[in-house]
Write a protein that binds this DNA or RNA. Structure first.
Lengths: 232, 232
DNA sequence: GCCTTTTTTCACCAGGTGGTGAAAAGTGTA
DNA sequence: TACACTTTTCACCACCTGGTGAAAAAAGGC
């Protein structure tokens, strides 16, 4: 259902509460988010966003300026929530387990908040993750955008892993992170590819299946790389 | 350097050999490939492709039809080479090692041809891998495109892994493949993200570093998932 | 040479693009 | 009421989009 229709029925009881001001700003962001996630930055026009939000084209420019600024606003909105959730999760893990931390535990603390948010956070989050996955694999400005929004929490992960495995080299840690993020983003974006590939055995929407495998997979891969580097 | 300029100097000896006919068709594909890889399907116009190829816009439609057909032609050209290289590599591995096959060996036979081609195959291949990585993370038509071009060789991988670990469930195999392909495509697309993230410690162009880690990483992750599933 | 076929260019179209400026409508305050 | 301010709409612009049809040029067969 388009945001326009959603706004139209507007609740049905009490004040009609026509969306206005900041409400409308969020509505525009929601529509833009869904469209950007499905078609990419260049595959979406400001007119499409306006139409789905039930809003005049000029209003988008009034609130956000240029199209690229709208995109950044979409990207930023949830990045802050994400970063805080991950930071809190990792800090809690460090404080709870201290010297008994494991690689798999750290990785779980890093990834699981995203899975939980995707499962419990409502539909907008699925679009958002698909969007981030696309940006993550975009050359030119993709790397710069990811760095701008997500570098700090990644450094927190790497530093924590370095505490758990003090002998590991940073080169290995960063490469393992890259492998991890490739797997993680592809799983979170739920492209549907695994559904057809596996002929119905797996479903990309089944994040519980991801949870049951991804942490162990990444942790084992990580340990193997560190071990191999140590003996080499 | 643009293809237009490349064509202009045209060799310098013997027949002037102005590119024509099928040559020109390849030139257009080269230009399209580079542009699509950098900016995505919607981020490129047929005029840009024509300009970089040093060719009239109408010629593109003469040879390839609609823009989307041009994109598919770009995608198909190298997919066939890729699929054959991978299939040959895996068959050779199976025949050479037979009952002594290992998970890491199979995965190496599956991934290494791509690394080698990227290292030795010339610049066009780097663009191509970046392109495939983008499509792999594209919802809507990305999954369908990947399936159309790459499903058979993936099934060959999964079936071979099933021989090496007969007790493994297909569900686990497919999920592990998804994790693997996410890591692999991100590494092959050389987005430059790891360069800035690691502050110069790692370079995404360093495929030798990938080779030294990715096979072991994926194999260990794979074994861990299978083992966990077996005992659960 | 001539004729046919393929390749390349040119001029053009209908519709869509991001973006703007001014007017209009709404909102709060006194 | 009148006023200032914010939010929303409308009409519009210059430019670009994918794509087409016919003419021109080149290549090949005889």
């Amino acid at each position: 259902m388009t945001a326009a229709k959603t706004r139209a029925r507007s609740g049905g009881r009490g004040r009609p509460s026509k969306a206005t001001g900041l409400d409308l700003k969020e509505t525009i962001l929601d529509s833009a988010e869904g469209l950007f996630a499905r078609h990419g930055f260049h595959g979406v026009t400001t007119r499409q966003v306006a139409a789905e939000a039930g809003v005049d084209t000029a209003l988008i420019h009034y609130y956000f300026g240029a199209k690229r600024e709208l995109f950044d606003a979409v990207f930023l909105r949830r990045a802050e929530i994400l970063n805080q959730a991950r930071s809190v999760s990792m800090n809690a893990y460090v404080e709870t387990f201290g010297a008994r931390m494991t690689v798999e535990g750290v990785i779980t603390a890093f990834i699981d908040p995203l899975l939980r948010i995707s499962q419990e956070g409502g539909g907008g989050w699925k679009s958002y993750f698909a969007l981030v996955a696309q940006v993550n694999n975009t050359p030119v400005w993709g790397g710069e955008t990811m760095a701008r929004f997500f570098d700090p929490v990644v450094h927190q992960l790497v530093d924590t892993l370095k505490i758990v495995r003090p002998d590991a080299e940073y080169r290995d840690l960063y490469w393992c992170y890259q492998f991890l993020t490739g797997s993680m983003m592809l799983a979170l974006s739920e492209t549907g590819r695994i559904d057809s590939l596996s002929e119905g055995v797996c479903h990309s929407s089944d994040l519980e299946a991801v949870r049951a495998r991804l942490f162990a997979y990444c942790a084992a891969g990580f340990e193997a790389v560190v071990a191999r580097s140590g003996k080499a």
